[in-house]
């Protein structure tokens, strides 16, 4: 049967959305941080949320995972409404949120941090931990050391590795590039890209570093003052000089 308007086989609307956000609105105290945000993160892709400081990017992730309660709107994970689900249940539903500022638990060792990430799953085989150490060989040397001795890059590796131990279907990454050298950023983004391509992981990436993010992402969503002002293919966004100058600062 022919479609009335021919569309290509893999148009955005035909890919399945692992995460869907509809009309999400929330505030930090008296300040409205998100104002009716609607977006989707597709399966097996990296969706980058970009925008200036204060655009609402971090609040978006915090509202999705329930750390901030929304006033209006809906969050759907694989079609299931998780808007009101407790924060603690998100990871069991398949969503892992790596918060801003590299949420390592400084007093615990590297190994213990990883074990916390797998706690909710009960017994987890040694080989899953070994796989994380294989992905991030730097962590192997640091295994028994408290996490507060790690460098910024190592912390980012630790929190991503810890999130992977939850075996998420979607990974929410909040500013992984913050304060890291460009070389480390490239390394981490490269690894995320490989995980997405090889294992079908889906990623919702929040970044202020829009240029780096768009080179690794499939789709870009631009937030400004809590509203979505653009949602495009990453390459299209990179080419749109006006939009870049107006909202992304490059």
């Amino acid at each position: 049967m022919a479609e009335p308007h021919g569309s290509t086989a893999l148009s955005a609307s035909e890919r399945t959305a692992v995460l869907e956000v509809r009309d999400l609105t929330s505030s930090y105290g008296p300040v409205r941080a998100l104002d009716g945000v609607t977006l989707r993160a597709e399966t097996g892709r990296i969706t980058a949320v970009l925008g200036a400081n204060g655009a609402g990017k971090t609040t978006l992730l915090r509202t999705i995972s329930g750390l901030v309660r929304c006033e209006r709107g809906q969050v759907l994970l694989d079609g299931e409404d998780i808007t009101r689900a407790p924060v603690e249940s998100m990871v069991t539903k398949g969503m892992a949120h790596v918060p801003e500022g590299r949420g390592v638990i400084a007093e615990l060792t590297v190994e213990e941090n990883l074990r916390v990430g797998a706690l909710f799953r009960g017994k987890v085989g040694r080989e899953e931990f070994d796989r994380v150490y294989d992905l991030f060989p730097r962590l192997t040397e640091r295994r028994g050391q408290p996490a507060h001795v790690l460098s910024g890059g190592e912390r980012q590796m630790l929190v991503i590795g810890r999130a992977l131990l939850a075996r998420p279907r979607i990974l929410l990454l909040d500013e992984p590039s913050l304060g890291l050298a460009p070389r480390i950023v490239a390394q981490i983004f490269g690894l995320v890209r490989r995980l997405v391509d090889a294992e079908g992981l889906s990623v919702l990436l929040v970044e202020q570093n829009a240029r780096s993010a768009l080179t690794v992402a499939d789709t870009g969503i631009v937030l400004n003052l809590g509203r979505v002002v653009a949602a495009e293919d990453a390459r299209t966004l990179l080419a749109d000089e006006g939009l870049r100058h107006a909202y992304l600062g490059f």
Binding site: S65, L67, V87, E88, S89, M90, V91, T92, A96, H97, P99, G103, V104, I105, A106, E107, L108, E112, R115, V116, G117, L119, F120, R162, A166
Partner: peptide
Amino acid sequence: TRLGLAMRASAFGQEVARLLGVRV
């Protein structure tokens, strides 16, 4: 013990522990 690890994680990183599924 795993319980002790969950308690320490909750004590030192409440928000992170919640995000990791620990019933803080």
